[in-house]
Design a binder for these strands. Structure first.
Lengths: 118, 118
DNA sequence: GTAATTGTAAACCAATTGGTATACTATAAC
DNA sequence: GTTATAGTATACCAATTGGTTTACAATTAC
């Protein structure tokens, strides 16, 4: 297998940097998980977490900057919703490597099986 | 769609933190891309990059800590190879959200088409 | 043996991170 | 109009990051 990866799709590096960085924090991943159930205000999002509102505010801006989330301001509350495109970009990048790891995992499994058979 | 995400698979948070963090740097992603073509020594990996060898050494340790890479020491050279499991873990996490974003993207496309038709 | 090569270790640096507390703005409720 | 609520802004903090330079250890080549 020689899969010459030339950064095909033009997902710019900066965008991928931001998306993967956004996903690298467990609080932000939990926020995404919560938003998956539907839109929510900043307060609602912050409540389950042991950190202050400003901290959650920062996390939300990181998610927004990565294009993973957007907000609609309604009076004094900000309604946050997931934006699917950016997540899809990250998945696309990983997709490039899917063939590699599936094949690798398969051969690892075969090897294990072969040893089992000894 | 109400996909109640309860962190099903037991990919521990720390592991996902490390994997996504490892992927959040473009130099490290490029190193992964290079390793996809086959194992390589630290020197070979470092050569194409405009940074020093110790810097690449650090990146490789980050990849190793994330479980994305391993090395076999042969004399004075370290032969680095990808480890597929960790990448697969990241992909699995994203997979959880696949249904969401595919549906969302589809409805966005529909909307665009509908507007086109006006 | 001496010199070159491969790589890590350690010390340092500026920038970023995730968090806080406090102050503030703006909307909503009474 | 006063008070409570939702959220941001700012200033600060300690820890981490990505990079450097210099020094070092170990293997290989001559």
């Amino acid at each position: 297998m020689t899969l010459t990866v030339t950064n095909d799709r033009n997902l710019p590096d900066e965008a991928l940097d931001r998306v993967f960085h956004a996903l690298s924090d467990r609080t932000r991943r939990a926020l995404i998980a919560r938003l998956l159930e539907g839109p929510a205000s900043v307060k609602e999002l912050a409540d389950p977490f042991p950190v202050t509102l400003p901290a959650i505010g920062k996390h939300l801006r990181v998610l927004e900057a990565a294009g993973l989330m957007h907000r609609e301001i309604r009076g004094r509350t900000h309604i946050c919703s997931l934006t699917p495109e950016a997540l899809s970009d990250a998945a696309s990048w990983l997709q490039t490597y899917r063939m590699f790891w599936e094949e690798s995992l398969a051969s690892l499994a075969n090897e294990a099986e072969r040893k089992e058979g000894d």
